[in-house]
């Protein structure tokens, strides 16, 4: 059934460990649609990281299929996978992962530059717009080292969204922020999710996030043990309804 942003069917992942191989995922079936604001939870060693790697098109399954934008990742070369990521995904990390020697604008511009689809001025306009969107319009030419944690994460968000990806993967985005800042970051992401329709998938233990998420997937021992809907925010959007219709 098309329409899913990403779909996992019978995904199995094994890792070789010396002479034996360890099975990290035991036949996962999962899919995400446009506009979802979901989170994946699970203790370490549960296979959560593996799952994220597969969804993030950074790794491919040992058995089964991962369909991203209709393409099966298992059949793609590293180059094609990288392309896939570039045009379809965005990433936000708990350590922000900005390039310290570049300015804020240059950091945000990076994915656009790699895409080779815009002229310099077009890129610049897009970058400035994005930075305005995350409230950092005045910090265009600052270096990341000159910003606070919260500001840096906003830059990271801007970078992740500047290419208008279909799916954004956020790994513990509030882990290095205080609760107030973390909250505002979450609010920002929720806002963007609602206005742009970008699917957000969090990997987190943070209860605040899980509360905000419309869907919480629990992973344990390489299996999905729960895929329920967490408490929804009060304002339903059309996107939410559409997503619910497809679930």
């Amino acid at each position: 059934m098309s329409g899913h942003i990403v779909e996992l069917r019978g995904v199995i992942k094994d890792y070789p460990l010396g002479k034996v191989s360890v099975r990290a995922l035991h036949g996962i079936d999962l899919s995400f649609d446009r506009g979802e604001f979901a989170s994946i939870a699970g203790p370490s060693g549960s296979g959560k990281t593996t799952l994220l790697n597969l969804i993030g098109c950074v790794d491919v399954p040992s058995e089964g299929t991962v369909l991203m934008n209709g393409r099966s990742t298992g059949e793609l070369s590293d180059r094609e996978l990288t392309e896939l990521r570039l045009f379809n995904l965005g990433f936000i990390f708990q350590s922000f992962n900005l390039v310290p020697v570049l300015t804020v604008a240059q950091n945000v511009e990076l994915p656009l530059l790699l895409q080779h689809k815009m002229t310099g001025s077009e890129r610049h306009a897009q970058v400035v717009a994005m930075l305005e969107r995350v409230g950092l319009g005045k910090y265009v030419n600052h270096r990341p080292t000159e910003l606070s944690g919260g500001q840096r994460q906003r830059v990271a968000i801007a970078r992740a969204l500047v290419t208008k990806p279909k799916l954004v993967l956020a790994d513990e985005p509030t882990a290095n922020l205080d609760s107030v800042t973390g909250n505002s970051i979450l609010q920002l992401m929720r806002e963007l999710n609602q206005t742009e329709g970008t699917t957000f998938l969090f990997s987190t233990h943070d209860a605040a996030v899980m509360k905000l998420a419309s869907r919480v997937i629990r992973v344990h021992d390489g299996r999905i043990v729960d895929d329920g809907h967490g408490a929804r925010p009060s304002a339903d959007t059309n996107a939410d309804r559409a997503a619910a219709a497809h679930a």
């Binding site: 993030g56 950074v58 590293d78 180059r79 990288t82 392309e83 990521r85 570039l86 045009f87 995904l89 965005g90 990433f91 990390f93 350590s95 992962n97 390039v99 990076l110 994915p111 790699l114 895409q115 970078r159 992740a160």
Partner: peptide
Amino acid sequence: VAEIGTLRAIGAQKRF
């Protein structure tokens, strides 16, 4: 390594 990994993740090819 972290920086490189990040760049790769967001779509930089090996060649880059």
